[in-house]
Computed example of a mutant assay.
Amino acid sequence: MKAILLSLAFFAVFIGAASAANIVIMTVEDPNNYESPRTMREFAEKELKPLGHKVTIVEGDKPQMHHFAGLIEALKDADLLVLFSRRRFPPKEEMAAIKAHLAAGKPLLGIRTANHAFLPKPNEVVDASLAPWPEFTHEVLGGENTGYETKGLPYSVSVPAGIKTPLLEGVNVAEIRGYQSMYKVLPLAADATPILIGTAQEGASTPPQPVAWTRTYGPSKARVFYTSLGAPEDMRSADVRRLLLNAVVWTLQK
Rank of each mutant, 00 (worst) to 15 (best):
K164V: 12
G230F: 09
K2S: 10
S228N: 09
P160R: 06
T251S: 13
V185C: 07
P194T: 05
P187C: 05
S19V: 11
T113I: 10
E124I: 06
P120E: 04
D127M: 08
E233F: 00
A131K: 00
I111R: 00
R241S: 03
D30W: 08
A247P: 05
A200V: 07
M95H: 07
V125L: 12
S205N: 11
P154F: 01
D127Q: 13
K164T: 15
E29C: 03
A18T: 08
E144A: 08
L141R: 11
I163V: 15
E233L: 03
K46W: 05
Y34F: 14
T27M: 01
E94T: 12
E35R: 11
K92T: 13
K99E: 13
I15G: 12
G110I: 09
G170L: 10
A20D: 11
I25C: 09
P31K: 11
P207G: 04
I57Y: 13
N145D: 15
A74L: 09
K121A: 13
T146L: 07
W250F: 15
P194V: 09
M95D: 02
P37T: 11
A212G: 11
P187F: 07
S19A: 14
T214Q: 00
L153T: 11
T193I: 12
T137N: 04
S237L: 02
Q253E: 10
I176L: 00
G105K: 07
A100P: 02
H66G: 08
L141W: 12
D127S: 14
D234I: 04
K49E: 15
A3K: 13
K62Y: 09
E124F: 05
L153P: 12
A20E: 05
V126E: 03
T199Q: 08
M65R: 13
I4M: 09
M26S: 13
A238N: 10
P208Q: 03
L130T: 03
P91I: 02
L81S: 02
K99W: 02
T150S: 11
W133E: 14
P50I: 12
I163F: 05
I72V: 15
F136N: 04
E93F: 10
P187K: 02
V240F: 07
L109R: 02
I163H: 08
L119Q: 13
V13N: 07
M1I: 08
E149P: 01
V248W: 08
E233M: 00
A69C: 02
Q180F: 14
